[in-house]
């Protein structure tokens, strides 16, 4: 049984791409057609029991800040956020199920849960898919499977992924070796915000690339096995450091604590990178367990749109945000006990 609550796997996600048979895809559809399609799909999605009291908004009705918050929470893609009339988002109350309507495909639906729970998110997605196929006529080819706008998604239309926190592999400089071997398994490694984003905060997203010629279960199985192996390597890297060079880890955690508790201006990237090392400090018992939640919360709260939302300021300069971010972090960190670094070195 995989450890659902392990602190290395942040979240598990599965998304299905689906399209309506012989209807123009969002990339080519004219505005009126797109709007009609959106209304049709939205009605079917909203009727799902899973979507009771769901958040449902047309893209043109979302403010820039709301869109950014949704992107930061991985509930909407950057590609979807730039769409205008004719696209929509439906999100359940728990924020575990989201359906992007008229992104690249007519439907991009995803389930997301904390920890390593790939099988469960897949089951959530399958339940939604099976209910929707009774209402919407999905494009399905007898040999090519589910048809998608981009041929890289054809077949299952499924992308399964997990977000991993791997500071041990980064500090021990083993991460590139791991990424290379993962790539050879037909899996992709990306940064925090998916395609094209860099790995801030030692966070890496591992996902399948193959969608045709393999069953969903086979894809999930391979992904889970690879994740289990990465977890093992990350844990090994931490153990080896603690046994052989504890001062390297303690130095990283201590410096991060020092900067975060005294900074008056800090960028998102620097904050994430340093928070990652504090998180590592909690994993290594250098902080009491009760500070885990406030540190984890800071990962999200310090993102630009979340910060502005918290301050109730729809517009803010980057400089002001950096100052606000530093204040928020300082306040929270200074309320925490000082890490027991010296004791760890002697112990």
């Amino acid at each position: 049984m995989p450890n659902i609550n392990n602190n290395i796997v942040i979240s598990s996600r599965v998304r299905f791409a689906r399209n309506l048979k012989e209807r123009p895809l969002p990339g080519v559809a004219k505005k009126a057609v797109l709007i009609a399609l959106m209304e049709e799909v939205k009605a079917a999605v909203m009727a799902l029991p899973e979507m009771e009291a769901a958040f449902s908004k047309k893209l043109e009705d979302l403010t820039l800040l709301e869109k950014q918050i949704l992107v930061e929470r991985h509930l909407m893609s950057c590609e979807h956020a730039v769409k205008a009339a004719g696209s929509a988002l439906v999100l359940n109350q728990e924020e575990t199920l989201s359906v992007m309507i008229n992104e690249e495909d007519h439907l991009r639906m995803q389930a997301i849960l904390p920890g390593l729970q790939l099988q469960r998110v897949f089951e959530m997605m399958r339940a939604v898919d099976e209910q929707l196929e009774g209402k919407l006529d999905f494009a399905f080819h007898p040999t090519l499977g589910y048809l998608t706008a981009c041929p890289t998604n054809v077949g299952t239309g499924m992308r399964a992924s997990a977000m991993l926190h791997l500071p041990g592999l980064v500090i021990s400089e083993q991460i590139n070796k791991i990424i290379n071997s993962v790539n050879k398994m037909g899996l992709a490694v990306r940064g925090l915000h998916g395609e094209g984003s860099d790995a801030k905060g030692n966070l890496f997203q591992i996902s399948n690339q193959i969608t045709l010629g393999e069953k969903e279960e086979t894809i999930l199985q391979r992904l889970s096995e690879v994740i289990e192996q990465i977890l093992q390597h990350e844990q090994n890297a931490r153990t080896v450091f603690l046994q052989q060079q504890p001062e390297i880890l303690l130095d990283q955690v201590g410096r991060s604590y020092g900067i975060l508790s005294h900074a008056y201006s800090i960028t998102t990237k620097e904050a994430l990178n340093l928070l990652s090392l504090l998180k590592l400090g909690v994993d290594l018992n250098l902080f009491p367990e009760h500070v885990r939640l406030p540190i984890d919360e800071l990962f999200m709260e310090t993102q630009p749109a979340h910060l502005q939302q918290g301050a109730q300021q729809p517009k803010m300069s980057a400089k002001d945000r950096d100052a606000l971010r530093a204040t928020l972090i300082r306040t929270k960190i200074n309320a925490m006990p000082i890490p027991k670094l010296q004791a760890a070195l002697e112990g």
């Binding site: 007898p142 193959i210 045709l212 393999e214």
Partner: peptide, 19 residues
Amino acid sequence: MLRNMHPSLVHVGKAPRHF
């Protein structure tokens, strides 16, 4: 294109129930 991207050209995963 598909041959470059995927190991096989035949879908073996789930299908809509009616199909």
